[in-house]
Design a protein around this nucleic acid. Structure first.
Lengths: 350, 350
DNA sequence: TTGAAAGCGCTAACAA
DNA sequence: TTGTTAGCGCTTTCAA
């Protein structure tokens, strides 16, 4: 374990003060070309590496962004993270990632940890059961920029803020227009001839699912179709939820002829079970999923779904946060485009 | 932006020295109960939070583990990361995660960044085309523990070290026995009556794929089946690779009756294409995948695969690294159990 | 263009 | 059981 080289060591060698070395290394304008060249070369040669703790201690910033996601092992979230990492890395920020495992308790703890480790900014997608943002107040109080992405606080969902462009809450948010995307998905099913559309979804306290339900209702209303409480299945969107939904659907007296699932994985498992039960997709039941998970393209029939650009969302969120850190004003709410991708599972009219 | 509370502020209030406050806060044995209680209470009340940079600068450690993975948006890797995060978090370590995007160049850059940010330890799964570990030498030289998981340096794969329990390289590694897992998968196909088994795999310079090929060969040899170069397809294991493999298989003169794919996603896309081409699975072609991705259970027929416990691997790796940091000797090579999960895609004899 | 000096907040050896 | 003191490595104000 060798001794670390410091700017003092370099200073001694070049017979300059540590201050000058520091300036030279930081490309300070007041330092002469030659000095800079000399110092840089020597630093390189001596294997110098700056000590970020000393720097951070001095500068009072960390060049680190905190991230809290519900889970790491989801293809959507890891794609978002990949986008964030790309942008953060390019701007020489590190990402400290933690997962709430869909529990507010853990989310609160994570927030606390990240606050204590003094991240320069925070990127958050909320847990299933988070219904308050009190645990993020500390960041706002300290002026640490906070950005919500995808699952934002409920009172900030698209449906809630529609009409009032500005949210009272000072945090930036990056979302897709879940209400509209859902509306289009359901409208598509109706246009394919569906009259009873089952809606298999997640926790409705979550902004994304609440907004999607709103879009579902809007589409029904527009086509004068009655909204039925019993056609909305609130589940954990797991593999089992899909199977069960299929069985429920089949058992219904007035059998639905369309299913809109807010998650591809669940949709695919529902589709598989429907086929097993002898129902034809899309003939008997047309289906639309959500996310455009790669899985949609390997099932038979391929699943119609809402394309949801995870990587772009991650990039956008990271970029927005870093911009804020650099003094730009908060962009408020950024809406990432999404679109319906029509495939075999919903195409009935040829 | 309020002023931060420091131990000096607390010290002033309780009329003690900063050193005592520091000790009290760190639960130092030499400090009296009452003092501790008093200090802790006041700290809490004043909204004190320790400054990790000062601490790190002083202690010369960061309580941070670096992670380099090929990609973030893979269900397997994000599951591994989830496991790591859980363990690290519990031991109050932060994870700084970066992705190499399967490129050595980026991997080298990431290693450099993490080295400079002085992580206490490093967890690495190598990129596709990494064939040297020179860029990690700096860590070893500085005595920073290094642990490889899943994709380890080639000269350290199971096949290479079989027999010689100890590797010359000082880095710990956490892997599954790819050679054995692959052997069992192929043996299973053979026992189901397959005589020509196509092997769709990834970059053979990667330890995992090289080892799996070795297992494939061993199984063939054991049953006196000839090894044919042309039956090994080295691809990027993407969705297209699966499709293409299916088409190639169909076009072969002496058509293979089994396929062993080293990745479920690719396997599933191959399966879908085989069905499209009119081949029956498992009757005409029996299939086995690798990873036990949830996707395997929603396809028809369900895919036989090698269960590969990502979360456990992540937990084990993080724990091993942290143990090393706490002075435990390196466990050398840790082998995580894996097992063949037989499902419909390979079951021919009833 | 460069240097001196102070200080960021904390910990630990040594002393009491 | 507590205090004194020095210093981790860096940046920055002020002065030259």
């Amino acid at each position: 374990m060798e001794k670390e080289v410091t700017i003092y060591d370099i200073a001694r060698q070049v017979r300059l003060s540590p201050a000058t070395v520091s300036r030279a290394l930081n490309d300070h304008p007041a330092i002469s070309r030659e000095t800079k060249a000399m110092v840089t070369a020597l630093a390189q040669q001596m294997g110098y590496r700056s000590n970020p703790f000393a720097t951070n201690l001095r500068r009072q910033r960390t060049n680190t962004l905190g991230v809290i996601v519900p889970r790491l092992n989801s293809i959507f979230l890891s794609t978002v993270l990949a986008g964030m990492e790309k942008v953060a890395n390019a701007a020489s920020y590190n990402l400290v990632i933690s997962q709430s495992l869909e529990s507010v308790r853990k989310e609160v703890a994570n927030a606390r940890t990240l606050f204590d480790s003094r991240v320069d900014g925070l990127l958050v997608s909320l847990a299933f059961d988070t219904d308050t943002t009190d645990h993020f107040e500390a960041f706002l109080k300290k002026g640490i920029p906070l950005l919500y992405f995808d699952r934002v606080p409920v009172d900030q969902g698209m449906a809630a803020t529609a009409g009032s462009r500005l949210s009272a809450h000072p945090a930036t948010q990056v979302v897709i227009d879940n209400e509209q995307a859902s509306y289009e998905a359901v409208r598509h099913l109706i246009e394919q001839g569906c009259r009873r559309v089952l809606h298999l979804t997640g926790n409705l306290r979550c902004s994304v699912y609440a907004d999607r339900l709103a879009g579902y209702r809007r589409a029904l209303a527009e086509y004068d179709l009655a909204f039925e409480e019993s056609l909305v299945l609130e589940t954990d969107l797991g593999i089992e939820a899909g199977h069960q939904a299929a069985r429920q659907l089949q058992a219904m007296a007035d059998r639905p002829d369309g299913v809109f699932v807010t998650n591809d994985f669940s949709a695919v498992s529902c589709l598989a079970e429907l086929k097993r039960l002898g129902l034809r997709v899309p003939t008997d039941v047309a289906m639309v999923g959500f996310n455009d998970d790669p899985i949609t393209q390997v099932v038979e029939p391929a699943l119609t779904t809402v394309h949801y650009p995870g990587e772009l969302m991650g990039e956008t969120a990271a970029r927005a946060l870093i911009d804020t850190l650099n003094g730009a004003p908060s962009p408020g709410q950024v809406v990432i485009p999404s679109r319906l991708v029509v495939r075999g599972s919903s195409l009935r009219r040829v």
